[in-house]
Design a protein around this nucleic acid. Structure first.
Lengths: 152, 152
DNA sequence: AATGAAAAATGTAGCCA
DNA sequence: TGGCTACATTTTTCATT
């Protein structure tokens, strides 16, 4: 499925996903068209799902982040899931095993916005909120190894 | 600081951060050089911190995700933070208020890998693990509004 | 996977509101 | 300050080997 050239390619893209094919080709010691082919294949296979800019949320006016664990009140599971999806301040949410059920990340303009949003959930869920003080590990990619063909 | 043109530009990049300047220019009804200028400004101001490919973690051989809450044992706060940073399977981790202290996201090849990694933390932290069953909200950007100049 | 030519995109410079 | 056009350079794409 994926060999070391693909892994090198993905690694280079992680440094800067807007790098030109020509640049990538130089980094890999390959021709432009070859790199283009491989990239297209990785996109079509959905190994690469998208290319996104990483935005600084402070610049967007969000001064605060929080992690909220949510447990639906009886019969409110679907309603809770819908409201989570419909809350644009929630930038990430997982449904998990155990008591908590949902773990969501929120971005907030200020502390009053946190209060407003949690109020909106109070009729359908129990919540436990943690304010983010720092992020020792920012979103990063784990070691790239193929699920398929060996890389040796 | 940021006007509606910048917001439109950031929105277009979120659809595909590898889009050419020429394409972005067409989408914004502007000239190439103007868009190039704005993009450079957003990068220099660090509104855009980076451009990254979104990779499918299943394709990379990770079959499982978990959220782990960690509380350092007495005197182990720094050691715990270091080990978190040094664990490549942790793709995201926040230091938060309250009992939990750290909330980490892990990607795993299989359930035995979870066991191994948690064992490695057992001497420095109490852990509470939740396995991810689904992700109702995948990483997304909250509403883009400027922290500075109005957008009206 | 590479080559080479055609088409497209980019960066630069000078100019305008 | 922003944005524009014009043009030289680089990159991308496509057909072919």
């Amino acid at each position: 499925m994926m060999d070391w050239i693909d892994i090198t390619l993905l690694t280079a893209l992680q440094r800067n996903a807007r790098t030109s094919l020509a640049n990538l080709a130089r980094a890999l010691n390959m021709s432009g068209p070859s790199v283009s082919e491989r990239l297209k294949r990785l996109e079509e296979q959905r190994v690469i799902e998208a290319y996104v800019p990483v935005l600084n949320i402070k610049s967007l006016g969000y001064t605060l982040e929080a992690i909220v664990r949510m447990q639906p009140l009886p019969g409110q599971l679907k309603a809770l899931e819908k409201q989570i999806i419909d809350t644009p301040n929630i930038t990430e949410c997982d449904k998990v095993t155990g008591e908590d059920c949902f773990i969501a990340r929120l971005v907030l303009r200020d502390i009053t916005e946190l209060d407003e949003i949690l109020d909106g959930f109070s009729t359908i869920a129990m919540t436990a909120t943690s304010i983010v003080k720092s992020s020792p590990v920012k979103r990063r990619t784990p070691p790239l190894q193929s699920a398929g063909r060996s890389t040796t």
